[in-house]
Design a binder for these strands. Structure first.
Lengths: 210, 210
DNA sequence: TTTTTCTTGTTAAAAAATTCACATATTTGA
DNA sequence: TCAAATATGTGAATTTTTTAACAAGAAAAA
């Protein structure tokens, strides 16, 4: 099929498929049908086949999908079959946790530089990285090949951080600060706030009990 | 209107509205129109009015919405106008970061108990809390009034953690471990994995550059 | 070989979510 | 007091997403 527009929800589900497929592989499953994968992911099996069809034909009729092969194909489709170098801005609570979170590297997202405007933090070494003033972003970004910016500042500093990133020609931004930012339309932005999920749980519990 | 079924996406957007409204309030805005709020949230203004209409009529025609009042109304609608007591299972990298993340308390989600099955960790004190074996969950949950379980274990321990939570009559679960869990259908589960967002960014960058 | 059993990829149908458009209500200014 | 301007709430139209259904391809059984 190889379609033009791909629903955002599809991308989210592909991430789930990878997660489940990797666990399946670890448990020794070499082949899986869309039906079984669907059950493991709590989705409809047509959904899976349709999601995959946006990117190509990865299965074998009458057989199913070869797990390892499918993982590779999905990663290729998403563009995560390579290393992405990231710049972190804001080495506070959240920023520190992200630096320490070694899954980043393991999953292909390398945090290669850390920035903070707090004079008390500048110069400190952290996980083998020196904390630098964000004004140096513009010169360091091309040197280090930084492509993705991670904002983990307080909310009122997020826009300034975004400006630095845009100015340094970063290609995409992920914002952990609880505030919206404005950037040119060609730069994708994703907002991460796990309180969204806590709200969703609270809401569902509340809804269910009345 | 006060409708029956509420789209999941609506809940997600309500969380965004709260975030933006709180920033607006801090900047001294007392009243706002759906049109302006929409621009700040990058959504359609009808979308906002419709989202709110699921829960009631919060605006004034010809005027707009009183910001503080709207924040309160949305929080009430979501059931986050009170404190939710949470149990954390898994005090590793992620768990530790969550315990240290003081926004939890500030936003109404109090982590009141921390569990881990690692004998080296049991008994240690952390942020004023003693780490306890998950087998004690069942007795502590009713004592402490724990309602939400937070799983932050390695993926292969997530299901066991979920079982403990279900057994302790927890009402909802948020799972930070990168694996799916099975629980009875009346217990809402939310999965948090910010790599989803990194994947989305990587995908959009890749898509845009070819 | 041929038939039966599986399971994919895809088209068509159904369901759901979003956006439009406007009647309705409020305020401001003449 | 009336007209003009503003902005909500909502039914209708549109768009998007999801699900169902099935033809086509591959393996296993007869």
């Amino acid at each position: 099929m190889k379609s033009e527009h791909i629903p955002k929800a599809t991308i989210g589900r592909l991430a789930v498929y990878i997660q489940v497929l990797e666990n399946l592989l670890r448990d020794g499953n070499d082949v899986i049908s869309s039906e079984k994968l669907a059950r493991a992911c709590s989705v409809n099996s047509s959904q899976i086949r349709k999601d995959l069809a946006y990117f190509g034909e990865f299965g074998v009729r009458g057989v199913g999908y070869y797990v390892q092969e499918l993982i590779t194909s999905i990663k290729q489709s998403l563009g995560i079959d390579r290393v992405w170098k990231c710049a972190l801005i804001g080495v506070g609570n959240m920023g520190t946790a992200l630096l320490r979170h070694h899954d980043f590297g393991r999953r292909g997202f390398q945090i290669c530089a850390a920035f903070d405007c707090d004079p008390d933090k500048i110069g400190l070494e952290f996980e083998g990285m020196e904390i630098v003033c964000p004004t140096h972003l513009k010169e360091q970004a091309p040197e280090l090949n930084l492509e993705i910016g991670i904002i983990a500042t307080p909310p009122d500093r997020a826009q300034r951080a975004a400006n630095h990133l845009v100015d340094a020609n970063i290609r995409g931004i992920i914002n952990f600060a609880p505030s919206r930012i404005n950037v040119p339309p060609h730069i994708p932005v994703e907002y991460v706030d796990f309180f969204d999920h806590l709200y969703a749980i609270a809401f569902q519990i509340t809804l269910g009990s009345d």
